[in-house]
Design a protein around this nucleic acid. Structure first.
Length: 702
RNA sequence: CGCGAAGUAGAGCAGCGGUAGCUCGUUGGGCUCAUAACCCAAAGGUCGGGAGUUCGAUCCUCCCCUUCGCAACCA
């Protein structure tokens, strides 16, 4: 197998609308960084690119939310993310951004190239348009009544109440959430990328050529996507934030963000080449380049299907592999920005990294744990206790402790210098360790080439464990006690420590891709230069010269104590609580109040008080409770969607307000005669509207 | 209900047709250079349940149960 001439590594472009959390870090950034560092240590030609993704509708939305401009948003988050990545030792060769002119030009050239060659098709469709806001409406911006269940809170893409997938056309009485007015239909035409034309290519390329070397989850997703039928995909949109469609008369049309974002890898490479006086073209055109995309599982379709089609049409090389990771959960629950259940990179940096002098060891602790639990084959779990255990018992007690005891003994028994190796005295244990070192190198190499970072890191720790075992067998501290009677045994001590020192040098090289700060700290201890970390040096047992004076012992890592873990867990939980409190900025309702009605309209509604007599869960429905309600002169059956908020037994006897003249409606096969009036708080919790004092059932409310 | 994912020792995970494994944790003993490690020993699993295919199933098939996710953001 001949090696590629050069490597191009990409990490998913983070979206510039907020801070990123450790899930992102574990999914797309740390693995890529390990891989890039490993290749660099091998002296391969490698470029590692990333950057902020700064287009798309979510940017203006975030700007509105923060009361500022899109430009301010992307500047703010681009700077923040760039800083966070730096603080966590990500070694991008360039961290670019898609708002740069060079990216706009690159993306437009891409579009023009495809369009000129007839690879895009134009379709005219009718879309909802908000005249007052003067803009076309994305599905999500349209609200209306669901044709399926009758809920008036359905969105243009899906109904929240019954879960059915909708298209905006199906909505009854659609309303724009921008202005609150009814939108009109307006014709618009857009460019589409016909994916279906490339089905044969995809089948051959993914399902045949890569069926064995891509991860099963990646292949699986591609397969279901291909077999589900490849639809044409709109390349452009009616928007005012993005990259202009480079066609005369296409005013107000922008490239769809999914189209321009991956091209960001190309423009980042171009910018890197300019900055470093290199030629970018071979990285994207030469077949001898190995392109690897590191992403999370939500991005598989773009990087395995859509972008490769674009690349192929544009004459570029295709990715060699797309080692997508699954998701990382946090303390038993899915990470979520909106629920504030997450650990932002920034929070870890502030709480751990910045508090330390230099902070390198805390960066490596996080890198260690995230690699050790990387969701390579399925979703995995970030537990603070797990973080503590991993750091304390593996990094500190195995790896750190081995280096430390080596250093302490070397100073005590060998005068702080690298002792001589007496080859004639080498025994079985020594030779086994030499083999172990060489084997570890090979194993780690192979695992890294297969993108199995978790296992590769395990092998590094495993080697330090072997070191501990070796030292235990040789017991130089015991030998030292008998030196007086047997001066010759200094040679045995020398051998042991010499080998332990060489092993430490090897550990530095092997750990370097994973724990770059630790590797450098070890260089400092050994008083050697960066060059020693060249991967070729791994497996060698003559890295440190005899007689060389080494530095005083210094701990590589500190332990994580229980208090820190407790603090973090409490912080996480209190963040969740804070979300449940009402927010000030939400005083202004997102959707304008309903239209003014006359008293007569109100009078049409009959409201009465009622008392809940019985309540039971409706079978096969998560949210529904079947209630019988005493309305004074009658008892009615009412089905109410409150099961997620109240247990049946706790509401029996409650006085509630009931709409009594609502048309009967069947829900899950049970006829509901009326509706319980509920108030919904900011957290989405429903509350009964009850009389302040107990009152006769059936009393009129007005 | 529907769609998707998952259920293997106390925890986190591998394995995936042929005597159940790793890391951490727990218990007892030994050792001491070290932020202690290492060694020895032990406890702990009817591999979610049931049926089927097979000479043989944790692994394949079917049924069931349970858990998680299924507005948006998002690796």
């Amino acid at each position: 197998m001949s090696l590629p001439k050069r490597y191009l590594i990409t990490s998913a472009l983070p979206y510039a609308n907020g801070l990123k959390h450790v899930g992102h870090l574990a999914g797309a950034y740390i693995p890529a960084d390990i891989y890039a560092r490993y290749l660099r240590a091998q002296k391969r030609d490698v470029v590692f690119v990333c950057g902020s993704d700064e287009h798309g509708t979510a940017i203006p939305i975030q700007a509105t939310k923060e009361g500022t401009t899109p430009r301010a948003i992307i500047d703010k988050y681009h700077a923040a993310m760039k800083q966070d990545f730096e603080d966590l030792s990500m070694s991008f060769d360039i961290y670019h951004r898609t708002s740069e002119p060079i990216h706009h030009e690159t993306a437009q050239e891409f579009f023009t190239y495809l369009n000129d060659r007839g690879e895009l098709e134009i379709k005219e469709t009718e879309q909802y348009f908000d005249e007052e806001a003067n803009s076309f409406l994305a599905d999500r911006y349209i609200k209306g009544t669901c044709p399926n269940c009758g809920s008036d809170r359905a969105f243009g893409d899906q109904c929240e109440t019954c879960g059915r997938t909708l298209s905006p056309d199906e909505l009854i009485n659609p309303v724009s959430t921008l202005s609150g007015k009814a939108p009109i239909k307006k014709k618009t035409s857009h460019w589409y990328l016909p994916l279906g034309k490339h089905e044969a290519f995809l089948r051959e390329w993914i399902l045949e050529q890569h069926k064995d070397d891509w991860r099963p989850t990646v292949i699986g997703q591609c397969k279901s996507w291909i077999e589900g039928g490849l639809q044409s995909r709109a390349v452009t949109r009616d928007l005012d934030w993005g990259i202009k469609v480079p066609v005369a008369g296409a005013d107000g049309k922008m490239l769809y963000v999914w189209f321009d974002a991956p091209i960001g890898y190309v423009s980042a490479t171009k910018q890197w080449a300019i900055d470093n006086n290199k030629d970018w073209k071979p990285y994207w055109y030469d077949k001898d380049t190995k392109l690897v995309h590191f992403i999370g599982k939500d991005n598989i379709v773009f990087h395995c299907i859509i972008f490769p089609i674009m690349l192929k049409l544009h004459g570029n090389i295709l990715p060699e592999n797309v080692p997508a990771n699954e998701f990382l959960n946090l303390e038993g629950d899915k990470m979520s920005t909106s629920r504030n259940w997450k650990l932002d990179m920034r929070d870890y940096i502030n709480d751990f990294v910045k508090k330390e002098n230099g902070g390198g060891q805390c960066v490596d602790m996080l890198r260690y744990y995230l690699t050790q639990i990387a969701p390579e084959t399925k979703d995995s779990e970030f537990m603070w206790k797990g973080f503590q255990d991993a750091v304390n018992s593996e990094l500190v007690s195995k790896f750190g402790n081995f280096v430390n005891r080596t250093w302490v003994l070397m100073h005590k028994l060998c005068g702080g210098k690298v002792p001589r190796l007496h080859e004639e005295l080498l025994d079985e244990n020594d030779r086994t360790l030499f083999t172990d070192i060489k084997d570890a190198k090979t194993k780690i190499e192979n695992l890294l080439e297969e993108y199995k970072f978790r296992e590769a890191l395990f092998e590094v720790i495993e080697l330090s464990r072997k070191g501990n075992q070796y030292m235990q067998k040789k017991e130089p501290w015991i030998v030292a006690k008998k030196l007086a009677e047997n001066p010759e045994s200094q040679k045995s001590i020398d051998n042991t420590l010499h080998i332990c020192l060489q092993l430490t040098a090897n550990l530095a090289i092997l750990a370097n891709p994973f724990l770059p700060n630790t590797a450098r700290k070890m260089l400092h201890l050994m008083k050697v230069v960066e060059k020693m970390l060249d991967w070729d040096n791994a497996g060698k047992i003559n890295l440190l010269s005899v007689g060389y004076t080494l530095r005083e012992p210094q701990l590589l890592f500190r332990q994580i104590d229980d208090e820190e873990i407790k603090t973090q867990i409490e912080k996480l939980k209190s963040g969740l609580l804070k979300m449940e409190e009402p927010k000030k900025e939400e005083v202004k309702p997102e959707v304008p109040a309903k239209a003014v009605i006359q008293f007569d309209d109100f009078a049409k509604i009959e409201l009465k008080t009622g008392t809940i007599l019985t309540a039971e869960k409706v079978e096969k429905a998560d949210k529904l409770l079947k209630l019988s309600v005493d309305l004074g002169n009658e008892v009615r059956t009412i089905v109410s969607g409150i099961a997620l908020h109240y247990q049946p037994e706790e509401i029996v006897g409650r006085q509630v307000t009931v709409v009594t003249n609502l048309a009967p409606r069947k829900m899950r096969g049970i006829e509901s005669n009326g509706m319980i009036v509920m108030a919904e708080d900011k957290a989405g919790k429903l509350h009964f509207i009850s009389p302040a004092q107990p009152i006769d059932p059936g009393s009129t409310v007005s």
